[in-house]
Design a protein around this nucleic acid. Structure first.
Lengths: 121, 121
DNA sequence: CGCATGCATGTAGAATGTCTACATGCTTAA
DNA sequence: TTAAGCATGTAGACATTCTACATGCATGCG
């Protein structure tokens, strides 16, 4: 069983939620990539950890889609950082993805714990 | 924008949750593929719909992993159906996946709605 | 001065699970 | 005989994630 190695731990993130997480984080305010991943990790209570190999491609993807915009700045640490902020599009997408998440997670919750007692239309 | 067509609606299911859903459904009792998908749909309040192209591969995958076992039977409709049931392995996997789901969904929930007010260790 | 460490950004390639689309066959009722 | 609903299945495309590697700057320490 030592052979197959990779991926035995399943995907650490629920596929399709990273964009949502990034967008939501940027709604608290502009932030650079590394900072976003840290905020996600902290806010989630150390549960969610975003690998750089997921983070940066996602960021580039979102920028291509014009959901976010970047700008190089100098951080407090005196380093060049690429600061992202939400565009109007991004805000809309965030709202959409949040409602999608709620729909799906509630759907799953119900599928896992069905309660037959919901009589009303 | 009519060109790219496919996948514009994003994945309908959160990737990685289908196995959980199937396993949980089988815990209510043995069931055949088609029936499983219907139960998921009904229990989730029509929110989750499993395509056959996701369902059957998932079933075969789970059987290969010895989480479920199948047996051909004749249904009430007089049709040959492949009835699946959980194995001991499957029950364990179900428990694991449920806790994974709780972890992740709570993590995401917290990341989306951080409340700084959780002082105690 | 040299080096390690932490911050910060990035890419290539593999793996996975989902989706779309198609295909088949049976049973029952019109 | 034909249509509709039940039931199972496969092939191929696709997006997103993961692992692993690579780079560079700034700071502090020996």
């Amino acid at each position: 069983m030592l052979k197959k190695a990779r991926y035995q731990n399943k995907i650490e993130l629920l596929q399709g939620t990273l964009d949502l997480l990034i967008l939501q984080t940027l709604q608290w305010g502009p932030q650079h990539g590394y900072g976003i991943s840290q905020q996600i990790r902290t806010n989630s209570g150390e549960v969610l950890q975003v690998d750089t190999g997921s983070l940066y491609p996602a960021l580039h993807r979102l920028e291509r889609q014009k959901a976010i915009k970047s700008e190089w700045k100098v951080s407090e640490n005196n380093q060049q950082v690429k600061v992202y902020r939400l565009t109007a599009n991004g805000k809309k997408q965030l709202a959409d993805e949040r409602s999608r998440w709620e729909q799906l997670s509630e759907g799953i919750e119900r599928a896992l714990n069905p309660q037959k007692l919901e009589g009303e239309a």
